[in-house]
Write a protein that binds this DNA or RNA. Structure first.
Lengths: 140, 140
DNA sequence: CTGTGTGCAAAGCTTTTGCACTACT
DNA sequence: AGTAGTGCAAAAGCTTTGCACACAG
């Protein structure tokens, strides 16, 4: 049904990022990299189980956090107690629909940021996140 | 000690925003509007208790959420399970120091956003949040 | 007396921690 | 055997819900 990645493809991708490819990590990576998407930890958990994997919730959380620190996925924080993991590897920003909770990408090159302010002394920039909050027009 | 707002000033401000000024809401508002600041729900809870107020955690959460919907404070979401409530009423964006968890304001006029992307059909913009993530230089 | 609004204990989440286990050296 | 790395049950922490109470009409 699903266009699935082979186990070897996934193992290779994990190793490229310095992640030891264990069974649980491979199962989670298969879910994440099936296509570019935004998933919560719980989404990942359930997708993995639907594919027959047996992984604890703690491991899902710890693995997503590991993948994030290794640059395999990107954490997006737009909603209290709802972290999304973004598997789109390109530089982009987000629309966040506050009525539906939906998260949509837009290419970073569409938006020009000029006159960046001076950073506080002793700090360096790590990244810029732009979130455009939107509502459904009909809701007024 | 503290430069405190009078109860009447606070009541007036709540009423201006259509919020019924109950005892708990007045206590919370006094904490919030003592000066422009970034506070988590737990910070608010503890400051209120330090001032002698006796309010449950649930009420603090519900009240902050109410104030936010009425435009009295602004929710900032930069950290998983850590929502900040910002009492600075001017339009501004944020630096977020990922090493220290510190949140700093910078004036929105310092940053020019041009070439705003087209919004998805049927939606209207509600606001734009820019978060510049920074690290301490020494940490490398 | 009825209906709306408010506050909070308890329930329900999400996330983190600490430890048992594994797998290399 | 010793050491570093891994997975997960249980603990902790944050947020929401549902109900009891208060208050206005």
């Amino acid at each position: 049904m699903n266009q699935e990645l082979t186990t070897n493809e996934v193992i290779h991708r994990l190793q490229e990022h310095g992640v030891n490819p264990t069974r649980q990590r491979i199962d989670i990576a298969k879910v994440l990299f099936a296509r570019p998407q935004h998933l919560s930890a719980d989404d990942v958990m359930r997708s993995a189980q639907r594919e027959g994997a047996n992984i604890s919730k703690a491991t899902v959380y710890n693995t997503l956090s590991l993948f994030s620190s290794k640059g395999l996925v990107r954490e997006i924080i737009v909603d209290p107690s709802r972290v999304f993991y973004d598997t789109n590897p390109t530089t982009h920003h987000h629309f966040y629909n506050i009525d539906t909770g939906e998260l949509l990408d837009f290419d970073a090159s569409l938006l020009q940021l000029t006159n960046m302010p001076h950073l506080p002394p002793g700090t360096v920039a790590d990244g810029v996140d732009v979130v455009i909050r939107i509502r459904n027009a009909s809701y007024q």
